[in-house]
């Protein structure tokens, strides 16, 4: 029997429901709550049970002929991983170098990863855009954007 998409999905959600149910038991109850018809664990316990039931139902009704198998060929996972790392780095850069520089770095990084190599395009499509957005937010909409820890340490502030 080949594992189909439904089998994988069913197994994943069965595991998730079991873990969710396990941690639902850790939710602190107020004294006397256990005698109440409804408390903080009621819905999580029900959801864990329903999740488990539906996952098993999915596993039982899944195709067994292997037609609906999960094929990972033809997908550019490496590029997506790089883009998501760039998103995480953007979050870190916001804290350290501030909004303006983080935006420029993020956009140039994004264009580069997607195949843009011309330095002029990289700069023209990122710097004016970042400055424009930064100016609109800080000067027109009066939103305070922290300058970033590194910038503060170097220039003070």
């Amino acid at each position: 029997m080949t594992l189909s998409k439904d089998h994988i999905g069913g197994l994943v959600f069965l595991g998730l429901s079991a873990a969710y149910g396990h941690y639902a038991g850790d939710i602190l109850l107020l004294p006397g709550d256990e005698y109440e018809p409804f408390h903080a664990q009621t819905v999580p316990n029900f959801l864990a049970a329903m999740g488990g039931f539906l996952s098993i139902l999915l596993l039982l009704t899944a195709d067994r002929d292997g037609k609906n198998g999960l094929s990972l060929t033809g997908y550019d996972f490496a590029l997506v991983a790089k883009l998501l790392v760039l998103v995480v780095l953007f979050g870190l850069a916001l804290e350290w170098v501030g909004f303006l520089l983080a935006t420029v770095i993020f956009l140039i990084g994004g264009y580069w990863l997607l195949g843009v190599r011309k330095v002029k395009t990289l700069l023209v499509a990122s710097v004016p855009f970042a400055v424009g957005i930064w100016f609109s937010l800080t000067q027109l909409l009066d939103i305070y954007l922290a300058p970033g820890q590194l910038i503060s340490q170097i220039f003070g502030g």
């Binding site: 969710y20 903080a40 959801l47 999740g51």
Partner: peptide
């Protein structure tokens, strides 16, 4: 069900206890 599970993350408004 998954969406409902995600909705339970955080502080429970009725009891004030934190969940997940």
């Amino acid at each position: 069900i998954f969406g409902l599970m995600i909705a339970t993350v955080g502080t429970d408004v009725t009891s004030g206890t934190t969940r997940f």
